[in-house]
Amino acid sequence: MKKTPILLAEDDVDYGSILKQYLEVHNYQVTWAKNGQEALEIFQQARKIPFAISVLDVMMPKLDGFQLAEKIIDIIPEMPFVFLTARKLKEDKIKGLKLGADDYIVKPFDADILVLRLNNILRRTQNRNPIKEPSKIKIGSYLLDTENYQLLRKENVQKITEKEAALISYLFQHKNKLLKREEILNAIWKNDDFFSGRSMDVFISRIRKHFKKDPSICIESTRGIGLTFRIEEKSKK
């Protein structure tokens, strides 16, 4: 069976060694970097054969996990990644979610749990429905480019992630209709658990900011039910 390539960025030698061995036993091909800068250089060299997922320790020298994640997203926006941390600060979790993390795991943890979560993330990301044609969708005064992961308005080009593109596309397909939260979560995250729900809230907040320059577009929240992607059609004279 072909092994799944994974980037592990962990500066604790003992911890990293144990994780590497355990992941390799569970059919992962592990490339282990011992600081953030080394991990970034490895990732840049592997662009033609990208990793399936990245596991990033938050507290690392040279580049911390958050800084590394931002640079990885710039290279491959759709790359799934997980943060590992010994810190339980709410602010760290929120920061990780805002960056688009697929999970945030607090040390110490059972290695079996990490493997299960990685398997679940890869199952969701590899089996998700691809965004279908057209690759460019007119949304108010914006143009969504689902092929290049861009949101364009006049001369402004906003880079977005693959998940943002999928979420915007899904909301637009159901514009002016109240969608239940679990519908959106199961369609885009393939899961409606608590973590996915919090992740979706962060993505919705980001998408609202992306569309803020067009007053005809808004995302309305209906407490306890879901969301409506509202677009006011311009009247034709």
Rank of each mutant, 00 (worst) to 15 (best):
N156L: 12
V202Y: 14
K190E: 04
T125E: 15
E147H: 06
D145Q: 13
K136E: 14
T125R: 15
L116P: 00
Y142I: 00
F172S: 03
P134Y: 08
D192L: 07
F172G: 01
L118Q: 00
L185V: 00
N120Y: 08
L178F: 08
L179P: 01
H174W: 12
I207N: 12
L114V: 02
T125K: 15
I137H: 06
R206F: 12
N129W: 09
F203M: 13
F203Y: 14
N148F: 08
I184F: 04
E182F: 14
I139M: 02
K138F: 05
L116F: 03
S169R: 15
V157R: 15
E182K: 15
P130L: 10
K138N: 06
I204F: 10
I184C: 05
P130T: 13
L144Q: 09
K177N: 02
P134V: 07
H174C: 08
Q158D: 00
E155F: 10
S135W: 03
Q173R: 11
K154R: 13
L171Y: 07
K175M: 05
Q126K: 14
N156F: 08
T125H: 13
G197T: 03
V157F: 11
Q150F: 08
L178T: 04
I139A: 04
E164Y: 04
K177W: 02
Y142R: 08
S199A: 15
I113A: 11
Y149N: 13
V157D: 08
I131R: 06
N127G: 15
N129D: 11
S141P: 00
N176L: 02
I160P: 10
L171A: 04
Q173P: 00
G197S: 12
K163P: 04
F195H: 05
I131Q: 05
N176F: 08
I160V: 09
T146R: 02
K180R: 15
S205C: 08
K136L: 14
I121C: 06
F203I: 07
L116D: 05
V115I: 14
F172W: 13
G197L: 02
I137F: 02
L171G: 06
I160A: 09
S196V: 00
M200K: 09
F172E: 09
E162Q: 14
T125W: 12
I113D: 11
Y142A: 09
L179C: 11
R117Y: 01
L151H: 05
Q173K: 14
K136D: 03
R208P: 09
V157T: 13
K190G: 07
I137N: 02
Q126W: 08
M200T: 07
H174L: 02
Q126E: 13
K132R: 13
V157E: 13
I137D: 02
I137R: 10
E164R: 04
N176P: 02
D201R: 12
R123T: 09
K177G: 00
H174F: 03
M200I: 07
I207A: 11
Q173G: 00
Q158R: 09
N127P: 01
N156R: 13
E155Q: 13
L171I: 03
F195Q: 05
L171H: 03
S205V: 05
G140S: 04
F172R: 10
